[in-house]
Amino acid sequence: MLLNNLTKKFKHWLPLAKSKIEKGASQLENSINNYDPKEIIPSKLIERLNTKLNSLPVYESYYDTLTINVHDYIHQWIINKEQNRKNCLVIKGNCVDNLYNILTSIFSEKSSLSKETIELDYQIFSLENLKQNRRDRLNYLQEKILEIQQQSDKKIILIPDLSYYFSRTIEGLEVLEKLLKLLDEDENKFWIIGCNHWLWLFLVKIYHWDAYIENARDLPLLSQENLQDILLPVLDLVEFDWNDLRRFLVELPNQNEDDHKIISQLQAKYFENLANLSQGCLGTASQLCFYSLRYVKNEETELSNLKINNPQLPDFPSITQSDRYLLFCIGLHGHLNKSDLANILGDDQIYITSQIECLVNLNLIHFLDHQNIAINPLFYSKLTKDLKDNHFLVESD
């Protein structure tokens, strides 16, 4: 029995070790070819920029579109309450966007609701005092389901991000079935549910949620103007010269224009590129923006100056099917700690630790804090395409 267990563990470990060695060699080669210590932006500066971004009311860019949609659907629900499938609106976003903050910032105040709904009770699934452990989150969701089942009054309920309460385990899927049953049967509640695209595809393909919920809308894509309004105040934290972007332009600005107008043209072109590369996703756009800043050493003064470059998506690395499955699981849940990830994968933490390290080194995932792992926004669009090409993300028929 002991020998069989050791053999099983060795067979499990061997491909992971091989993968780690191959990736380590590839990464070392890339670092030798591409690493320039004079041009690396310090992580502390990235943290400052992200902190500034999170402190700003950036979600005003979503406000008009989302509130108009919600008003329309709530109105339909009020006048057609017997049509159960109209009592829920799913708002889909990317797993690298902070869907929780977006929806709570917009709908936490009753002023964002129309007059016809202002008198209704309003309940938000809050993250306050919510523990990191997925089991605790499932218990919280189950308690809320039981609580709402006992309420007969009309009410609007907001779940800002369903992925916070999702667990791809038997227990987790059973709780989601109870939630779906409640949505389908209780005509006195209108639900606003945030859900990332990967999770929605999973729920539709495997559990046919679209048969019960017909109203699902995408988070509005951010335009060049939106991104410029959001990110320019963040960039005020640092000093650089927008004229550095001249070297990337095929057609230079008219030299007869005044400096202010030239800077405006350079900024417009920069944020146009940012909007195209990020596909309107704030999570991706903000990180592309921050990592387009580089410290470059002046050979004459020996001092390093901060310069801005054209935003550019990094090349997508070579990964295995095992990597794809792990990345898919992380994206479904928005973020996971190692313990929950191992539980969902059905493995011991020791088996996935080296794989996580490899994917962190490839920058495909990163730590949000000391515990939680998430998809790196810089790779979101290319990773999504890769997972679709390899049939991990499948559109419903």
Score class of each variant (00 low, 15 high):
Phe202Ala: 08
Phe202Gly: 07
Phe202Ser: 06
Leu203His: 11
Leu203Asn: 05
Leu203Thr: 08
Val204Cys: 13
Val204Glu: 07
Lys205Gly: 14
Lys205Asp: 13
Ile206Ala: 15
Ile206His: 12
Ile206Arg: 15
Ile206Gln: 12
Ile206Asn: 15
Ile206Asp: 15
Tyr207Phe: 05
Tyr207Pro: 00
Tyr207Glu: 03
His208Asn: 10
His208Lys: 07
Trp209Ile: 14
Trp209His: 07
Trp209Tyr: 10
Asp210Phe: 08
Ala211Ser: 10
Ala211Trp: 13
Ala211Cys: 12
Ala211Glu: 06
Ala211His: 15
Ala211Arg: 12
Tyr212Ser: 15
Tyr212Cys: 14
Tyr212Val: 14
Tyr212Trp: 14
Tyr212Gly: 15
Ile213Asn: 13
Glu214Phe: 06
Glu214Ala: 12
Glu214Asp: 04
Glu214Tyr: 12
Asn215Leu: 10
Ala216Cys: 03
Ala216Met: 05
Ala216Leu: 04
Arg217Cys: 08
Arg217Ala: 08
Arg217Asn: 14
Arg217Thr: 04
Asp218Pro: 05
Asp218Asn: 02
Asp218Glu: 05
Asp218Ala: 09
Leu219Cys: 03
Leu219Gln: 03
Leu219Asp: 00
Leu219Phe: 00
Pro220Lys: 03
Pro220Gln: 07
Pro220Thr: 00
Leu221Asn: 00
Leu222His: 01
Leu222Pro: 01
Leu222Met: 04
Ser223Pro: 09
Ser223Val: 05
Ser223Asp: 01
Ser223Asn: 11
Ser223Tyr: 08
Ser223Phe: 03
Glu225Met: 01
Glu225Cys: 03
Glu225Arg: 00
Glu225Pro: 02
Glu225Gln: 03
Asn226Gln: 01
Asn226Ala: 01
Leu227Tyr: 00
Leu227Ala: 06
Leu227Phe: 03
Leu227Ile: 02
Gln228Asn: 14
Gln228Trp: 03
Gln228Arg: 15
Gln228Asp: 07
Asp229Trp: 03
Ile230Arg: 02
Ile230Gly: 00
Ile230His: 02
Ile230Val: 02
Ile230Leu: 02
Ile230Lys: 00
Leu231Val: 04
Leu232Arg: 09
Pro233Lys: 10
Pro233Gly: 10
Pro233Ala: 05
Val234Pro: 06
Val234Ile: 08
Val234His: 08
Leu235Asp: 05
Leu235Gln: 04
Asp236Asn: 07
Asp236Thr: 12
Leu237Gln: 11
Leu237Met: 07
Leu237Trp: 04
Leu237Asp: 14
Leu237Glu: 08
Leu237Thr: 12
Leu237Pro: 07
Leu237Ser: 05
Val238Cys: 14
Glu239Asn: 14
Phe240Cys: 09
Phe240Lys: 11
Phe240Asp: 15
Asp241Met: 06
Asp241Thr: 05
Asp241Gln: 13
Asn243Ile: 07
Asn243Tyr: 15
Asn243Met: 13
Asn243Ser: 03
Asn243Lys: 13
Asn243Pro: 01
